[in-house]
Computed example of a mutant assay.
Amino acid sequence: MTTTTPLLFVHGFWHGSWCWSEVLAHVADSGRQALAVDLAGHGWRARRPESVTGRPFSPERLATEKSPVADVDLDQAGDLLVSQIRRLGRGGPVTVVAHSMGGSVLTRAAEQAPELIAHAVYLAAFMPASGVSAMECATMPENAGELIAPSVRADPGAVRALRLDTVSAEPAYRAQLRQAFYGDLDPADADAALGLLTPDAPLGIALGTTTLTSDGWGSVPRTYVGCAQDMTIRPPLQRKFIDDADAAFPGNPTLTVALDAAHSPFLSMPDRVAEIVGGLG
């Protein structure tokens, strides 16, 4: 029997627990207990706007229909994640691996219940400083050149979501989405993944902030796994996350791992991701 902590995997915006399937297969070889969960407003909890698949297709309706996940916020997402961590660990500590926007939710959960998290692993993830939202981070100069903002197909403030046209047949747009998420995957594999995305990501999660304390998030061991080809969270922003965290909590420095990968290494190099997280916690 393994004596290491259980592993819990948290996806990012538009994705679901499905995206960790290949990593989980590799983790299973080690015999370690592991689980992937759906964030609030995603996966099993996702709701799709009618305008995305409605026919005849109306770009105007796509740009204006209020999101069915408009009421989902960081408070709700953080509370759900804490409950998921508690259930997996049965009250004991768990190593949590978060991707992309899942990082902001992990930060909230770690501040709320640091005793439940043995190690926080940020995989190409948002790791905002105290009182800073992930949305603010996404628009910082360090994230120049990212491809998510140009891919959003509605005013987030109006529809209360970051909306992608996940079923678009426009070649240039689909190529942009592939580059944003899966730039190191074969196009056919990338298209298969795009087909599983949820069109709406709740704006409330991206706008939420967490006040970080030395007894909360600042006390939890953390690792940042950066991706050199990332077109969603650009490498300079990844570096800023690490530098800001270390400046705020110098007694608990961030461990770092570098991957020559695009934004979604759980699909392009799942064996390596499993190897990295398997050595933590």
Rank of each mutant, 00 (worst) to 15 (best):
T2C: 14
T3H: 12
T5L: 02
P6F: 01
L8F: 03
G12T: 07
G12W: 03
H15I: 04
W18A: 08
W18K: 08
W18P: 12
W20A: 04
E22W: 09
V23A: 07
H26E: 15
V27W: 04
A36V: 05
D38R: 12
A40T: 15
A46K: 10
E50T: 15
V52P: 15
S58F: 08
E60Q: 15
D73N: 13
L74K: 09
D75V: 13
G78P: 12
L81C: 07
L81F: 08
L81T: 10
V82G: 10
V82H: 10
G89C: 06
G92I: 09
P93F: 01
T95Q: 04
V97K: 01
V97I: 07
H99R: 05
M101I: 09
M101P: 11
G103Q: 03
G103I: 03
S104C: 04
E111G: 03
Q112H: 10
L116P: 13
A120V: 03
V121S: 01
L123W: 00
F126V: 08
M127R: 07
A129R: 07
V132Q: 08
A134I: 11
A134E: 09
A138H: 13
T139V: 11
M140G: 06
M140W: 08
P141F: 05
E142M: 03
E142C: 04
N143S: 04
A144S: 14
G145V: 04
R153P: 12
A154L: 05
G157N: 15
V159T: 11
V159L: 04
V159F: 07
R160V: 14
A161R: 12
L164T: 10
R174T: 14
L177N: 09
Q179C: 14
P187Y: 06
A188I: 13
D191V: 10
G195P: 13
L197S: 11
T198F: 12
D200K: 08
D200N: 09
A201C: 09
I205S: 05
T209E: 05
T209I: 07
T211V: 13
P221R: 00
P221D: 01
P221F: 00
R222T: 10
R222S: 10
V225Y: 00
V225Q: 02
V225E: 02
D230F: 02
T232W: 06
L237E: 06
Q238P: 11
R239N: 13
F241C: 03
A245R: 00
A245H: 01
F249E: 00
G251C: 01
G251H: 01
P253A: 01
T256P: 05
V257C: 03
A258T: 11
H263M: 00
P270I: 05
R272T: 11
R272W: 02
V273S: 07
I276A: 00
I276K: 02
G278L: 06
L280H: 06
